[in-house]
Simulated assay, not measured.
Amino acid sequence: MAWQGTIVFFDLQTTGLDTKSCHIVQLGASCKNTIFNATSSPASPSNTSYKVNGLTVSYGQLLLHGSLFPGPVLLAAHNAWGFDQILLMRVLRKFSLSEQFEQVVSGFVDTLPLSRKLHPQLKWFNQPYLVRCFLRGKYNAYNAVDNAKQLEELFWNYWEPYNDVISEFTDWFYALK
């Protein structure tokens, strides 16, 4: 059975690769034709991106243009466990936002090991190779929105994993505590 909840595909552009010290300069996300794009300079993060994409949080609920966002919401990234999840959670803790975040998001899906399980015959599993292989397209390593959209297309149009496979590659917040 296909996943019934909401999966938001995301990518981060950062000032480096060290999850303990780099800064997020772009967060791009894609979910069912809704695009999120937030950029910031490391010294002055933007707090107004919700006005552009319609996403807000009210009483611990994620809203899209004032309506309840369907849940549970999972965040999916390629190499989430090795980079994106670690960095995002560090930043959320730094600004005391992790508790509010966990009221809206139930966990992280890592599509890197998921792609290895679904397509073990492939030579490589990095996202640029997967985009070339399945989408026959080009991968722009420096655009988080494009990366998130391509990952969403790979997931739903080419991989179509079932619930048990998605759960196998998900870090649920209740399991992380």
Results as ranks from 00 to 15, higher is better:
residue 107 G to S: 08
residue 170 T to E: 09
residue 5 G to C: 10
residue 70 P to Q: 08
residue 156 W to S: 06
residue 27 L to G: 04
residue 92 L to G: 01
residue 86 I to L: 06
residue 68 L to D: 01
residue 18 D to S: 09
residue 139 Y to W: 14
residue 132 R to W: 12
residue 72 P to F: 01
residue 107 G to R: 07
residue 90 R to H: 08
residue 63 L to K: 00
residue 9 F to A: 09
residue 99 E to M: 05
residue 158 Y to T: 02
residue 118 L to D: 00
residue 78 H to Y: 02
residue 82 G to P: 03
residue 33 N to P: 05
residue 141 A to K: 13
residue 101 F to S: 01
residue 49 S to T: 11
residue 89 M to Y: 04
residue 113 P to S: 06
residue 140 N to V: 07
residue 57 V to G: 00
residue 155 F to N: 06
residue 144 A to D: 07
residue 79 N to A: 01
residue 49 S to P: 06
residue 139 Y to A: 12
residue 28 G to S: 11
residue 135 L to K: 02
residue 90 R to C: 06
residue 45 P to I: 08
residue 144 A to L: 10
residue 75 L to F: 14
residue 142 Y to N: 15
residue 94 K to I: 00
residue 45 P to D: 03
residue 66 G to V: 09
residue 16 G to I: 08
residue 168 E to V: 03
residue 28 G to Y: 10
residue 112 L to W: 02
residue 49 S to H: 13
residue 152 E to R: 05
residue 136 R to I: 00
residue 108 F to Q: 05
residue 45 P to V: 04
residue 96 S to R: 09
residue 31 C to W: 10
residue 111 T to M: 05
residue 94 K to E: 11
residue 31 C to R: 07
residue 48 T to C: 09
residue 78 H to F: 02
residue 89 M to A: 04
residue 68 L to K: 07
residue 40 S to N: 10
residue 23 H to T: 14
residue 115 S to W: 00
residue 64 L to W: 11
residue 73 V to A: 07
residue 67 S to T: 12
residue 27 L to T: 09
residue 64 L to H: 12
residue 131 V to Q: 04
residue 138 K to T: 05
residue 39 T to G: 10
residue 29 A to K: 05
residue 22 C to V: 13
residue 29 A to S: 06
residue 120 P to T: 03
residue 170 T to F: 06
residue 57 V to P: 00
residue 129 Y to F: 12
residue 41 S to G: 11
residue 65 H to D: 14
residue 75 L to I: 14
residue 119 H to L: 07
residue 26 Q to C: 11
residue 104 V to R: 06
residue 27 L to R: 01
residue 111 T to P: 06
residue 38 A to R: 13
residue 100 Q to T: 07
residue 34 T to I: 15
residue 113 P to W: 01
residue 177 K to N: 12
residue 34 T to Q: 15
residue 174 Y to N: 07
residue 28 G to T: 08
residue 28 G to V: 08
residue 58 S to P: 03
residue 91 V to C: 07
residue 19 T to I: 10
residue 25 V to N: 00
